[in-house]
Amino acid sequence: MWDTIVGELIQATRETWHGVLHFLPRLMGMLVVVLLGWLIAYLLKSVLRSILRLARFDRLSEHWGASELLNKAALPSSSELLSRFVFWIAWLGFILVGVRALEIVGLQEPIAKFFGFLPRLFAALFVFFFGLLAASFFSRAALLAAVNADLPSPRLVSTTIRTLIIIFSMSVGFEELGLGEHTVLVAFAIVFGALMLGLALAFGLGGRDLARRYLERRFVRERKEEKEDELSPL
């Protein structure tokens, strides 16, 4: 009886020990992969940061208005942000490869899914980033055009354009991610439709005089002579 118990215990201990011995190399392997991954991700980050600095990416980003957005959100510069993003994505990839090496059955499928999801995540972030840039550029262009044409509420025009472009890029981004595709699409359609209807009504009812004046300025030459003495700047 005692021998049986001792035998079972030894057997269990041996099996556990075997398990541990069998698992340890995989754990070590994972740790090595994670550490190596950190090193590679860090190198990638440094190289990318240098390349972006050489390519004056921050100036380009400033030019497009992205830096302004990042400053407002208290985020680091564009090149720093992109480098950090690449670092985390690369290291996360290595961590998951390491975890996969542990051969834990339940984790295999989510990890595979994550790697399958990565290209879509990149595409969505790409769309969103360029959406933000386009929103900043076009809203500023609209603001300047409205101020120089002495149109009413230039900030409102500018903010509306910015909001529409951001909403549009977000809806495309979410669609790419497969998150609430229909909800976002329908919400966007409703918001966009409502805005257009609102603008149509506002311009139709409130902007008749403005439209008339604009058309007269554009097409009726005689108006030029009626103006107050026009100062030629040149």
């Binding site: 302004e68 603001l143 300047l144 409205a146 003495d229």
Partner: peptide, 26 residues
């Protein structure tokens, strides 16, 4: 003599500075 509206120039300057502050800041 030349009839020129300075008032409008002033108004457009004031409005421009107020509305374009975010652009002028950069």
């Amino acid at each position: 003599p030349l009839r020129v509206s300075r008032k409008r120039l002033h108004q457009m300057f004031v409005r421009g500075v107020a509305e374009l502050t975010p652009v002028l800041k950069s």
